[in-house]
Structure formats: C-alpha cells, structure tokens
Amino acid sequence: MARIARAGIRFVILSVAGIVLVAVFIVVKSYSRARPSQPIEYNHKVHIENAGLNCLDCHVHAGDNVAATFPSLEVCRNCHNAEPVSKSAEELKVLKYVAEQKEIPWNQVYQVPDHVYFSHRRHVTVGKLECSVCHGDMKQQTAPVSVPYLAVTMDNCIKCHRERKITNDCLACHR
C-alpha cells in the first residue's frame, strides 16, 4: 500500500514539476524572441498622406503573390535618389543604403508559421479584402509597427472565415 502511495506521490510531484517546467519554458520562450525593430524608423503616414502612395506601390506583390514583399531598394530609389526630399534624419539612412546599393534589411512583423499556407493573392485579389482588415489603418502610423494589428492566430483566421462564410477546411490553410 505504502509503495503505491509513494508511487502516487512521486507521480504527483513529477507532474507538478512538469507543469511548472512547461510554464517556465513557455514564458522564457515568449520573451526570448525580441520584438522586431526596423533599420529605418519608417513613417507610413508621411508616405501615404504627403507622398500619396498606395500600399501596392511599395508592397508590389500583395496582389499577385504569396508574400506581399518588402519594398526593394529599387522601389525606394524611385523617390529617394541622390538628394533628400525631406529634412528627416531617417531619410539619410535610406540614401545611404541607396548609395551603397545595399538592400534594406527589413524585419518581418507578421509571421505565419511554416505549416500554414497564407497567400496575399488569395486574400487581396480573390477575396477582395482591404489591407486594413488585417494590417489596420496604416495612414495613422508614424512609426514602424512592432506588433501585428491582427495577431496571427488560428482563432483570428477562423473567426473572419466564419463571418465571411469562407471555408474552414483544415486543408485550405494547413499544409
């Protein structure tokens, strides 16, 4: 009897230890990933309101590709060539990249896990969604976003799919 009890106690202790460890692990894991910061304090508001740019002008493949893509240096160079067009210190950084012909190392904020198939084309062109549905109103953003407007969670995907009566077949998104 005692032996069984002892085994039971051991099981409980081990389970508790396990749960604690898992909790610690989760916390550590979530903090270990730094929030992305961008090489340039990009101001969406200025570009949209003053320069009159649309989303697709810079994220050129949002309509026809899986990834919307970050603007390549080529895109930036269209406006930011040799002379600065503003007084911003950030623009000088861009010009430096242009002068050195180095691609700007943008960091991705919205990341979809590798077992999920997410296609911009499917949402933008086929589904005719506005960018702001997931990315918020970028007209108001004066600094780079560091947290997704709409968290990339399956809950959010499913909710939206349900509201719009889009398939929730696992295979439609999982691969």
């Binding site: 077992h115 077949d169 696992c170 295979l171």
Partner: peptide, 10 residues
Amino acid sequence: NEDGLVAQIY
C-alpha cells in the same frame, strides 16, 4: 474534405 481529399494535418 469536401474536395474528396483525405487530409492529413500534421
């Protein structure tokens, strides 16, 4: 699934 595919969600 509705396309007649037997899906396997890893």
